[in-house]
């Protein structure tokens, strides 16, 4: 049975000192129940690292932090329950202040979401997930389908998701948009995670999971 420290080292987290909840699980609060044992097991499947980037970070509240934690936990659960299991590995948190965001903390069009990812990135091997508190319009996120892994490549190199504290929808939206980036398109089936309406059944089929597992952002099992 692999140890926590082995798994932490495998996903590139310093093991000394190691905060299990913050570093290994990537949680910002103590509010969302998580299972360390389960996460250790899940890293035995293919997984993707994620950078959670708060845009307009000084306006994020403790309720938003809980929502982010819930989104990460839900995405892990949905990906683990996929037709072929996957994981979310290292989750690290970053911030863009309201001043530095220059108006992009309130996204008013898909073009602005794209601009955000054009201008910012975390130079590591994780998928950039830009979290905004307000995405005006009938949609609540934007991502490329089958996004690139080279962060020096042109074009949208991350996903943008509205983090609506208390709305209880950001978790599905996060899993959905990351699903796009990892290669999935929309489906009409109402139980599918990739159904464009949120919330949905959250199901990822085996063939979808195979598609995601083949994405260049996916890491081999620990």
């Amino acid at each position: 049975m692999p140890s926590l420290k082995q798994r932490a080292a495998c996903i590139g987290i310093a093991t000394s000192p190691l905060s299990v909840r913050r570093d290994f699980m990537g949680q910002l609060t103590n509010s969302v129940p998580v299972s360390v044992r389960q996460q250790v097991d899940r890293l035995g499947s293919k997984f993707v690292h994620v950078n959670c980037i708060q845009v307009g970070s000084d306006q994020f509240t403790s309720a938003d932090f809980v929502e982010i934690d819930r989104a990460v936990a839900r995405t892990r659960d949905l990906y683990a329950a996929a037709g072929r299991s996957m994981g979310v590995g290292r989750v690290q948190h970053f911030v863009i202040s309201t001043a530095d965001a220059r108006g992009r903390d309130v996204i008013n069009s898909d073009g602005e979401a794209e601009s955000l990812t054009d201008e910012w990135t975390v130079p590591n091997d994780a998928l950039d997930l830009f979290l905004v508190r307000m995405y005006v319009g009938s949609t609540a996120g934007l991502s490329r389908v089958d996004g690139p892994c080279d962060k020096d490549a042109k074009g949208m190199d991350g996903s943008v998701v509205e983090m609506n504290a208390g709305g209880g929808l950001s978790d599905f939206a996060t899993a959905h948009e990351l699903g796009h980036y990892l290669g999935l398109s929309h489906r009409n089936n109402s139980t599918a995670l990739m159904n464009p309406t949120i919330p949905n059944g959250g199901v990822i089929t085996t063939s979808e999971a195979d598609n995601m597992r083949d994405h260049c952002r996916m890491k081999n099992p620990c």
Partner: peptide
């Protein structure tokens, strides 16, 4: 083919 000017880098969350 690749970016000429690097993108901005967000700060680590504290």
């Amino acid at each position: 083919r690749a970016l000429t000017v690097p993108r901005l880098v967000p700060a680590a969350f504290a």
